[in-house]
Amino acid sequence: MPESQSKPRDHLTTEDVAKVAHLAMLDLTDEELERFTGQLDAVLDLAEQLDRFDIADVPPTAHPFGLFNVFRPDVPIEELEGASRAEQLREEALAAGPEVEAHQYKVPPALGEAP
């Protein structure tokens, strides 16, 4: 067992967690940053247990069952159920949008800031 191969990892810092929060599009208060840093670091300690296994000749598993494609006929819904049904489905989907205009989701400016 290659226990000796793994060197101790660097502990998480508040800077690390601030960067991760930024990537995950979350804002943290200073108190949350401190608290989450300790908690997340403790979870990463669990990963040390994984070093006890020799994985050299073992392929990774992303999924427990052999993945295969499931195909359905590639037919526009208008052809299947008529144009009005397609329209209805679109409106149902849009109905959940926080802000909708002209059959589209509306968001604040992507570049710059709202006036």
Binding site: V107, P108, L111
Partner: peptide
């Protein structure tokens, strides 16, 4: 954007961050 809670933000990214937070 498409469903769920939205909090206001000055731009799209700020809106998304505020909503998720």
């Amino acid at each position: 954007v498409r469903y769920g809670l939205r909090r206001d933000g000055a731009n799209t990214a700020a809106m998304m961050r505020a909503s998720r937070t």
